[in-house]
């Protein structure tokens, strides 16, 4: 778990990995009915089968729908506004996440790709990052 390159660590283990500075989401596939789930789960939500396999999902997708959170718990300052979307990854499944973009930018079917979002530091001072999305044409 010791980073040797200054690369951030995933905020949560077992949900996504970081490859070449970008997140790769880990998806559970049911060995019985082939349904895919994110975040990963131990048991199929569709058929209750307990034999799940872990796969890597595509890093690209498009917006299924989205909103701009303007107010949270009565707070209207601080982190808001920010964009949250449901994203259909290429080949599935549909996942929910923050979209890093201008609140005026999103549109349904807009191409997006996974990106890292800084999430502070752990107790040992390692940089942490979560997954998020950005427009596919965003400058890297």
């Amino acid at each position: 778990m010791t980073p040797d390159s200054g690369a951030p660590l995933p905020l949560v283990d077992g949900v996504f990995k970081i490859a070449d500075g970008r997140p790769v989401l880990l998806v559970s596939r049911c060995s019985s009915c082939n349904e895919r789930f994110f975040p990963p789960r131990e048991r199929c939500a569709a058929c209750s089968n307990e034999n799940m396999q872990t796969e890597e999902a595509s890093q690209d997708g498009e917006l299924y729908t989205w909103t701009v959170v303007r107010e949270l718990g009565g707070q209207r300052e601080g982190f808001v506004p920010y964009v949250v979307g449901q994203i259909d990854l290429a080949g599935g499944p549909r996942v929910t996440g923050v979209v890093v973009c201008d609140p005026d930018a999103p549109a349904i079917r807009m191409p997006v790709r996974l990106c890292l979002i800084p999430q502070g530091y752990d107790d040992a001072g390692n940089e942490l990052a979560g997954y998020g999305f950005e427009p596919a044409d965003a400058k890297r």
Binding site: L72, T96, I117
Partner: peptide
């Protein structure tokens, strides 16, 4: 809680 943060914290309205 951290997974929910990555999924985007939203009020029910979101």
């Amino acid at each position: 809680a951290n997974i929910r943060i990555m999924q985007g914290i939203m009020p029910p309205a979101g």
